[in-house]
Amino acid sequence: MSARRPEPVQQIKQRRDGVLNALLTGIPYIQFLDIRFDRRGDELTAILPFDEKVIGNTMLPAIHGGVTAAFLEVTAIVGLSWATLWDQMETGELNPDALTPDTLPKMPKTIDFTVDYLRAGLPRDAYARARVNRSGRRYASVHVEGWQDNRDRLFAQATGHFLMPSSNG
């Protein structure tokens, strides 16, 4: 059995970043909050840049609790989609050049989402990472951690359940 020559690294990066970008740019709400994703291999870190429009209480000032919830929910949905698409993407079955708003894979739907607010969201950038704890054919359970300056001092965490898109369209 002859070993296959590994794919050039640039080609792999282009394909992964291409799929990720296609997922993100297609969703207006992600653009509205200006959420970005930093990718290292298959690990995604969501970034919520601090901006006037995310403030709730102006006196503190603090990030609006609703924005924190939304940020963690976006991180969970994108993280879950990304994890489900990974295999198809790696085999080349999912080609980013062929992804248009119409052919984009469907996103999981949120069934419920519970946010645990640990500290006030400070007026600076926030980060979040999702962990898929269970991903079945129909349902998934995802946990998300959000932090600001220190990775170990979470300002919020959340758990959500999601309905997976049906595979036949």
């Binding site: 969703i27 709400y29 708003p101 984009l104 469907k106 989402f113």
Partner: peptide, 27 residues
């Protein structure tokens, strides 16, 4: 508002915006 859409195929508002509305009304 179209800028709050979470699913462009259907035009449905993202759950995150609904969460923000719920949190605000709770407060």
């Amino acid at each position: 508002d179209p800028k709050l859409v979470g699913d462009p195929a259907t035009g449905v508002i993202h759950g995150g915006a609904v969460s923000a509305l719920m949190d605000t009304s709770g407060g």
